[in-house]
Computed example of a mutant assay.
Amino acid sequence: MARYTKTAMVFHWVIAVLIVGAFVLGLIMTDIPGFSPTKLKYYSWHKWAGVTVLALAALRLLWRLLHPAPGYPASMQSWEKAAAHHLHLLLYVLMFAVPVSGYFYTLAAGVPVVYFGVLPLPVLIDVDPALKVVLKAVHYWLTMGLAALVAVHVAAALKHAIINRDRVLQRMLP
């Protein structure tokens, strides 16, 4: 069976770890009451993970356009292939939309994003308290959508590995 390239595998797993890490940090940091050095540190790490996901997702998309994914096994039903295609498409969209919405939410709140504390990212919008409220909700719901799709993606991969035993999962394993 055809496999993904090693580069595609690295993109997949590094981005997956960053997404899960940013999600967990987001849950933890928003539960910390008040304003503390720890909360500020977690917010910074969360933003850095998001910016990194955005950059790697752009590189991953470029790689994917130049190196198409291997085909699905003939044993997969046509609806499964269509569902997998659409799920992957939505995952790509959200790998961009979630960090971008978080970035604009941060800017609308008047907080600059300084990547790893050394590289200030451009301020593309002015401080806007009303927009901040909207973007906070957008970022939250896009994130919840991404989390749900990641759960479906993992469940499908496990179904293929455990029930179908069709080696679909092995295509993305090193």
Score class of each variant (00 low, 15 high):
residue 107 L to D: 07
residue 107 L to T: 08
residue 107 L to K: 07
residue 108 A to T: 11
residue 108 A to Q: 09
residue 108 A to V: 09
residue 108 A to C: 10
residue 109 A to H: 10
residue 109 A to Q: 08
residue 109 A to E: 13
residue 109 A to G: 12
residue 109 A to I: 00
residue 109 A to R: 13
residue 109 A to V: 01
residue 109 A to L: 07
residue 110 G to S: 05
residue 110 G to V: 08
residue 110 G to T: 03
residue 110 G to W: 04
residue 110 G to N: 02
residue 110 G to M: 08
residue 110 G to Y: 06
residue 111 V to T: 14
residue 111 V to L: 12
residue 111 V to N: 11
residue 111 V to A: 08
residue 111 V to F: 12
residue 111 V to W: 05
residue 112 P to E: 05
residue 112 P to I: 03
residue 113 V to R: 05
residue 113 V to M: 05
residue 113 V to A: 10
residue 114 V to S: 06
residue 114 V to Y: 11
residue 114 V to Q: 12
residue 114 V to F: 09
residue 115 Y to T: 02
residue 115 Y to Q: 02
residue 116 F to H: 00
residue 117 G to P: 07
residue 117 G to K: 01
residue 118 V to H: 10
residue 118 V to Q: 06
residue 118 V to N: 06
residue 118 V to L: 12
residue 118 V to K: 10
residue 118 V to F: 14
residue 119 L to D: 02
residue 119 L to Y: 13
residue 119 L to E: 00
residue 120 P to Y: 05
residue 120 P to Q: 02
residue 120 P to G: 02
residue 120 P to T: 02
residue 120 P to M: 01
residue 120 P to R: 01
residue 121 L to N: 07
residue 121 L to P: 14
residue 122 P to A: 02
residue 122 P to C: 04
residue 122 P to R: 02
residue 122 P to Y: 05
residue 123 V to C: 04
residue 123 V to S: 14
residue 123 V to Y: 04
residue 123 V to E: 14
residue 124 L to I: 07
residue 124 L to K: 05
residue 124 L to E: 04
residue 125 I to G: 12
residue 126 D to K: 15
residue 126 D to G: 14
residue 126 D to T: 13
residue 126 D to I: 00
residue 126 D to M: 09
residue 127 V to S: 15
residue 127 V to E: 15
residue 127 V to H: 14
residue 128 D to M: 05
residue 128 D to E: 13
residue 129 P to E: 01
residue 129 P to V: 03
residue 129 P to M: 01
residue 130 A to F: 12
residue 130 A to G: 07
residue 130 A to P: 05
residue 130 A to M: 10
residue 131 L to R: 14
residue 131 L to N: 06
residue 131 L to V: 11
residue 132 K to D: 07
residue 132 K to V: 00
residue 132 K to E: 15
residue 133 V to W: 01
residue 134 V to T: 15
residue 134 V to L: 09
residue 134 V to W: 09
residue 134 V to G: 00
residue 134 V to P: 00
residue 134 V to S: 08
residue 134 V to E: 10
residue 134 V to A: 11
residue 135 L to Q: 03
residue 135 L to G: 10
residue 135 L to N: 03
residue 135 L to Y: 08
residue 135 L to S: 04
residue 136 K to Q: 11
residue 136 K to M: 04
residue 136 K to E: 13
residue 136 K to A: 11
residue 136 K to G: 13
residue 136 K to D: 08
residue 136 K to L: 11
residue 136 K to H: 09
